[in-house]
Simulated scan of single mutants.
Amino acid sequence: MANTLPEHRLSALLYLNYNQTWENVVHYSPIYMIQWCKYKPNWHRGTEKNIFTKFRDCMDWFFENGYIIDFDKEKYIQNTFQSSLINMEKMNPKNNFGILYDFEVETINKYQSPYKPLNKSILFLLLSYIKAFTWIRTNESSGHSEKSKKNKPEIFYSQFQSIAAFIGSDRKMIAKATEVLEQLGLIKTHRMPRYKDSNDNWHTDDIIYICPYRYILRNNQIVQCTKEEYNYEKELEYGILFLRNQNYVSKKFYQN
């Protein structure tokens, strides 16, 4: 949500996570980092903003905000080597976080967008935002009644414009990124119908985002939940009901 930074902040964060040593140190040069993130390290000297300056600004922000220790912005040049200590309290928080799985990272990294403004970093940014703000009832898959599932379905809901404002993008880009993530099988979506307010004015309502799979720790192994343990179609059904039940509070009157 540091929306003043370039979208590559999520790609840079992934690099730090994947490349840390047992001593919580990360080694990097700009060219290696950019290539690892599946970008071409084209340094256009005549432009104020290029792939180097974008990654550099992200790394400088991580340094200024305590995610990494020891970073020299002036040495972030081509093949110049640096090492930084990672602040694990920042990088591995105990609560309020979303998880990206390895296969999700690999899926996005393999994607080649025909629409040039839409890059891998934007897809990571949107997926991370969805994961971070999706309701999670608990880390366990059992012990929930149908009533508790209906009261808090595991969904995220918002509008393209709102998401864009929070993460520093635009509505069109979020709409395209949503479409791609769904094509890649990483999310499912449902658009709530238009609604009329108490003044008889029509509005576009929220879009529901939902993850089509869930993983849990079982017998010291991370395994995918069975359909009995997690059914995204049921979560979506309960999510639609939940939003419809807000009619009285929000004074929304949906189309039939």
Rank of each mutant, 00 (worst) to 15 (best):
G143W: 11
F71T: 00
I167P: 03
S84T: 03
E237N: 10
R56E: 10
P114T: 06
E74P: 00
F55T: 03
N19D: 03
L241N: 14
F52M: 10
N3M: 09
K120P: 00
N87S: 07
Y213V: 05
L217N: 13
F62E: 03
W61N: 11
A132D: 08
T4A: 15
S11D: 08
E182R: 07
A177Q: 02
N245F: 07
K196C: 12
S169I: 08
C37S: 13
N92M: 14
V26D: 01
N87H: 04
I108T: 02
K176G: 05
V25T: 08
A164Q: 00
D72K: 15
G185P: 00
E154C: 06
K147S: 06
S148P: 00
F160R: 09
S145T: 13
E140F: 12
L217R: 14
S158F: 03
D102I: 11
S158Q: 05
T226R: 12
N220P: 00
R45D: 13
A175M: 10
Y28I: 03
V223K: 10
T4V: 12
W22K: 14
Y195G: 03
F63G: 00
H44M: 14
G168I: 07
E233N: 08
T134K: 03
R137C: 07
L14M: 08
P153T: 02
R218E: 10
F103T: 12
L16A: 07
V105D: 09
C37Y: 00
C37Q: 02
V223I: 11
L85S: 05
E235K: 05
S11Q: 04
F71W: 05
K172P: 01
K176Q: 12
I68A: 00
S250Y: 13
T189K: 04
I174Y: 00
K49I: 12
S83A: 06
M192Y: 02
T4C: 11
P93K: 06
M1D: 07
N87G: 01
W135D: 10
T107W: 03
K172I: 13
D170S: 10
T134S: 07
K54I: 05
S83C: 04
L5C: 02
H144Q: 06
E229Y: 01
K152P: 00
R9F: 08
Y67Q: 04
K94A: 14
H44K: 15
L217A: 15
K110M: 11
S250R: 15
T226D: 09
F52E: 06
M1K: 09
Y213N: 12
P93G: 01
E154R: 06
K90T: 06
Y230S: 11
A12I: 05
D57G: 04
